[in-house]
Amino acid sequence: MASAPVSVEADPPSISSPSLHSASSSFPLANWYHRFSSWRKTLDLPNPGTVENLQKEVKLTSLNNYFFDGGRADINKTLSASPLFQVTHSFALGSQSAPPSYNFGAVFGSNNVFLQGSIDHEGNVNGRFNQGWSASNVSKIQAQLSEQKGHSMVQLEHDYMGQDYSLNVKAMNPSPLDLTGIYIGSYLQSLTKNIALGVETVLQKPTPDVSESTTSYIAKFTSSDKNWIATAHVQPSGIFQTTYWQKLSEKLEVAADLQMVALPQRRDAIATLSAKWDLRMSTFRAQLDSKGKISAVLESRFAPTFAFLVSGEIDHFQNAAKVGVGVMVESSPLTPEEMGLTQGPPPQL
């Protein structure tokens, strides 16, 4: 960026700055680079978003991250809004898949620092630390700390968002002694205003003398009005995932997801259709998949500080069902009027 003015001065063939002109012509590579980058700037391509957020819209619509069974209670306390400081107590009971648990979480966020931590009743700690250096550079550290040997892990990550590309490098459990661990690098580049293509390489090094790398390819198509997004992620070994998300109206979003595994030892495919309705005081998510599961979650906000959740799932092929009920209580130093102002879409229904 610092060398951009040089190219501006060097481009017009002026006699007033012969030294600059000769300097840039004696480094043709630098000259070409400046021409290339100014040409790239004139294309005015948007940033394609990160590879991690490739399927963000689909994940927010589908209820994989929202489904629960059994009983659940969350108590959320916002102690300060700016900087953000929040503590959470969550209780879960009677789930078919997980034992009863208690979880305490704390979140602190200011303009460029984000700290998050949670601890469960067994003493396992999850931590997250994000540091934003500038608008386009973010470093992230994630850790899972456990008393049990071999359950701890740490992930170091750096995100760089260029004008029309995103770059991300990750290291999972890197050992400074023998460099074992998992290393992931990804790059996503906008080719036109709608299409972005990218690659992701995973290098696995379980022991110092074994290393294995796999590369996968990514494509993302965003419509001009950003109302629908289609993505594809292909691993040449035989794993293929494609998603489609569309915003049908202010209140309704739908998503489709198809995952295919065609490895020599396993052949499998699953398709999922999901929809999300954002109503005035509630959110309803419903999902149907090709394994015969129908599920739905209703989150109903009776008051700005109190929400009630109901969830259910029927597995038609296995003849099984799950039901969940939950409450969410929020307390905040803000008055109810202030919170009412910051709440979702205006009453229309």
Binding site: P83, F85, V125, G127
Partner: peptide, 26 residues
Amino acid sequence: LHYGWIPFIIYIGYTRSNPQPSLVKL
């Protein structure tokens, strides 16, 4: 980190919060 991470976040949040909350509430 295991023992200090949560207390560290609470300390940072407690000292930087505006207005400062009471400890009981925390």
